[in-house]
């Protein structure tokens, strides 16, 4: 078994349009581990995910991101993906004129050496198998990427990509939002299917509901652009039952959003 990768985030500070959003995030995710990040709206969760993947609008002003010791911040977005990172986005783009199937095949081939491209038949077999697993209508593969997809279809499509690209570390930004209960189970099955020593995962979510299907090893709470509390699965359960007030009181935080400091 291939040893898993390690993603280290050290003292990460991130600005968007001159405004500091992340103010020193520390987090380490190893192969085999499932982490969950929770936290109220506007506390920097998506910003963290975007900064890791290299979103063009986010500027890292301080700190480090390392994947197996390699400096991720030096890499272009495509290089980060090729190094093993994957981000299921909260709001995936629509790309007209490009079928989901063509896109997937191009993406798979981007991870392979020239001359070692995946052949059409094995690709279709693999794709059909994954579509079935995720209970996605086969027609979707011939539709243009995310164009006119419902919210739930977009989320399933992100998991389809996850399962076919098999990254070392995946970040899933609110993969559960907008899913009905059946879809949630299907998506959770997909994510659980990925579980192995060589796969690490960071799930951003607002709901314990997802974590009932995918038990995390670690749960972190973000406020004011930092990880303010970490614990085990019981932390998520307490948040579900009691909300965030108690953490704010414990830490003396009045306004948890990023514009404010403790």
């Amino acid at each position: 078994m291939m040893a898993g990768s390690t993603l280290e985030i050290k003292d990460l500070h991130v600005e968007i349009e001159g405004l500091e959003i992340l103010k020193g995030v520390n987090l380490t995710i190893k192969g085999g581990e499932f982490h969950a990040i929770m936290g109220p709206n506007g506390t920097g969760k998506s910003t963290l995910a975007s900064a890791i993947m290299g979103h063009p609008k986010y500027e890292v002003t301080q700190g480090q991101i390392l994947l197996d010791g390699e400096d991720v911040l030096e890499m272009e977005v495509d290089e980060r993906a090729q190094a093993g990172l994957f981000l299921a986005m909260q709001y995936p783009s629509e790309v007209s004129g490009v079928t989901t199937s063509d896109f997937l095949r191009t993406a798979i081939n981007a991870h392979r050496e020239e001359g070692d491209e995946i052949q059409l038949m094995p690709f279709i077999k693999e794709m059909d198998k994954t579509l079935d697993f995720l209970e996605i209508d086969k027609n979707m593969a011939q539709r243009y990427l995310n164009e006119g997809f419902s919210g739930g279809e977009k989320k399933r499509n992100e998991i389809l990509q996850l399962m076919m690209l098999k990254p070392a570390i995946a970040i899933l930004d609110e993969i559960d939002s907008g899913l009905d209960i059946d879809a949630l189970k299907v998506v959770a099955n997909g994510i659980n299917e990925m579980r192995s020593d060589s796969f690490g995962c960071l799930m951003i979510t607002h709901y314990q509901r997802l974590l009932e299907y995918i038990t995390p090893d670690h749960v972190h709470v973000m406020m004011q652009g930092r990880v303010v509390k970490s614990g085990g699965p019981e932390l998520a359960q307490r948040l579900e039952a009691e909300g965030y007030e108690w953490i704010k009181e414990e830490l003396g935080i009045e306004d948890e959003t990023v514009g404010n400091n403790a």
């Binding site: 977005v77 495509d78 896109f103």
Partner: peptide, 17 residues
């Protein structure tokens, strides 16, 4: 960004678009 986040090079991503 979306296409590149799946490992596709900028040139190839532009071509797709």
């Amino acid at each position: 960004y979306y296409l590149m986040s799946r490992g596709i090079s900028q040139e190839e991503a532009e071509r797709l678009i």
